[in-house]
């Protein structure tokens, strides 16, 4: 990926619909909690969110996928961005408040596919804006 600025942007996700091996994508195993944990490690190291880590309208535990957009610290400044830190804490708190959903059975599988699609749809615009190419949804 061509470096355009002093910092770079990555997408942390557990959604296989983005397709494997994409430049600037970091794939995490496990549910949304795993994605948030990875983001937490990054935020503690000075990375900041470019898109809010929470969805509009889904509790993170009700959704099997989560795609987050983060920007690296630029230069040597690795101090924690408090806004990102607060948003992350709110997201983790939201995880604790929600009950994990079980996507069992056929209807669960269909819903899972829909959630994967929707995750891509909701983040597509944001990823395009930061030049992380998104796949065409088919």
């Amino acid at each position: 990926m061509i470096q355009k600025t002093a910092s770079h942007v990555i997408c942390v996700t557990n959604n296989p619909d983005w397709g494997p091996g994409r430049d600037g994508f970091e794939y995490v195993d496990g549910g949304p909690w795993g994605v948030f944990k990875r983001a937490r490690d990054l935020v503690h190291g000075g990375w900041r969110f470019l898109a809010h880590p929470l969805y509009g309208n889904f509790n993170p535990m009700r959704h099997p996928y989560r795609t987050l957009l983060l920007e690296s610290p630029s230069g040597g400044d690795r101090s924690v961005d408090m806004e990102s830190f607060s948003m992350l804490e709110a997201a983790l708190e939201s995880c604790r408040a929600g009950m994990a959903k079980n996507y069992g059975g056929e209807s669960g599988e269909a819903a899972r596919r829909d959630f994967a699609k929707l995750d891509c749809e909701l983040m597509r615009d944001a990823l395009n804006r930061y030049c992380l190419w998104a796949p065409v949804i088919s």
Partner: peptide, 8 residues
């Protein structure tokens, strides 16, 4: 009551 974390 937010406490700003110290630098690493």
């Amino acid at each position: 009551d937010r406490v700003a974390p110290a630098d690493p």
